[in-house]
C-alpha cells in the first residue's frame, strides 16, 4: 500500500540525535554512505553494523519503525542479492554437494550488498526520523549557502523540497480517492496489456494534476498572505546552531569512521 511508505517520516520525540544540528547529521550521513561503500573487511562491517545499532539506540525511535522502513525495499535487496549470487565469477560454491552455479565470491558480494543496502536504509531512516523535514531542508539550505554566491538557488530549492515532502501524504490520500472513484465508474487499473494499463491511468492522472495545480495556486496565495518574500531576511523558530553537543557527536562519529578506514588498511 502507498500508505506504508515510512521514508521521510519524522518521529517527534526527544533524543540525542534529535538535538543535533541537521547539518551535523547530514554530513555524518553522507560520510556514513561513503564509508559503507568503502568498507571491505568483515571487521569493518562489524564495526559499521555496531555503529548502526548505536544510531538506532540513541535515536530512541522504536526498532519496529526501522523494520517497517526496510519492508518496501526488501524485494530490491533480495533481487540484488540473487543477481550477485549467480552473476559473479569465481570459485564454485556447491550446495549440499551439488554445483548450482553459485560462487564463493558471489556469496560474499551478495551478503556485502545486502548488508550495505540495509545499513543505508537504516541510516537514512535514522536521519529522517530524528530530523523534521523543515530542519532537514534548513540544514541543506545552510550547507548549500556558499553556492548561492554564484547564483545557486539554495533557499528556493530547500523550500521546494520541504513543501514537496509536506504534500506527500495529502497527494497519496488524494490518489487513493481518485482511484476509488474511477473504479466505482467501472475503470480497472490492473488488467489488460501494458498499453491498455497506461491508457487507463489517464482518468487518474488528469484529476490528480488538476488538483495539484489547484493546491499549488492556493498555497502560493496563502504563503503570500503570510508575508513570504523568499529567503532574504527570514529568521527561524529554531535557529540551527552548531553547539558543543554537535562537536562531541561529530567527533565521536569521526572516530568511528576513522576506525573503519584504519581497520580496512590494517587487515
Amino acid at each position: 500500500m502507498l500508505k506504508d511508505i515510512t521514508l521521510g517520516q519524522y518521529f517527534p520525540i526527544e533524543s540525542f540525535l534529535h538535538k543535533l544540528d541537521p547539518r551535523t547529521k547530514i554530513l555524518i550521513f553522507i560520510l556514513d554512505i561513503v564509508i559503507i561503500f568503502m568498507a571491505q573487511t568483515a571487521v569493518s562491517y562489524a564495526v559499521l553494523i555496531g555503529f548502526t545499532f548505536l544510531l538506532m539506540l540513541i535515536s530512541r525511535v522504536p526498532v519496529k519503525m526501522y523494520i517497517k522502513g526496510l519492508k518496501p525495499i526488501l524485494y530490491i535487496i533480495i533481487f540484488t542479492a540473487i543477481l550477485n549470487l549467480f552473476l559473479t565469477d569465481g570459485r564454485d560454491l556447491p550446495v549440499f554437494g551439488y554445483s548450482i552455479g553459485i560462487t564463493v565470491e558471489g556469496a560474499i558480494v551478495a551478503v556485502k550488498m545486502a548488508v550495505r543496502l540495509v545499513l543505508l536504509i537504516i541510516a537514512s531512516s535514522a536521519l529522517t526520523y530524528t530530523t523534521s523535514p523543515m530542519a532537514l531542508t534548513d540544514g541543506i539550505e545552510k550547507l548549500l549557502k556558499p553556492l548561492s554566491r554564484i547564483g545557486f538557488p539554495s533557499h528556493e530549492l530547500a523550500m521546494m523540497m520541504s513543501i514537496a515532502i509536506k504534500f506527500v501524504p495529502t497527494l497519496i490520500e488524494e490518489t487513493d480517492k481518485i482511484i476509488k472513484a474511477q473504479k466505482a465508474r467501472g475503470a480497472s487499473f490492473d488488467t489488460g496489456s501494458i498499453f491498455k494499463r497506461a491508457k487507463a491511468l489517464i482518468p487518474m492522472l488528469v484529476p490528480l494534476f488538476i488538483s495539484a495545480f489547484r493546491r499549488a495556486d492556493d498555497l502560493a496565495i496563502a504563503m503570500e498572505s503570510r508575508c513570504y518574500t523568499g529567503g532574504d531576511g527570514r529568521t527561524r523558530l529554531r535557529e540551527i546552531k552548531f553547539t558543543r553537543t554537535d562537536l562531541i557527536g561529530a567527533l565521536a562519529f569521526l572516530v568511528i569512521f576513522a576506525g573503519v578506514i584504519a581497520i580496512d588498511i590494517v587487515f
Partner: peptide, 20 residues
C-alpha cells in the same frame, strides 16, 4: 465485481474533482 460496481453507483465527496 464489474457487475457489482454497476449495480451500486457510488458518488464520492467532491465528485467534481474526478472529472477528466
Amino acid at each position: 465485481l464489474k457487475r457489482l460496481r454497476c449495480d451500486v453507483g457510488l458518488v464520492f465527496q467532491y465528485p467534481e474533482h474526478q472529472l477528466f
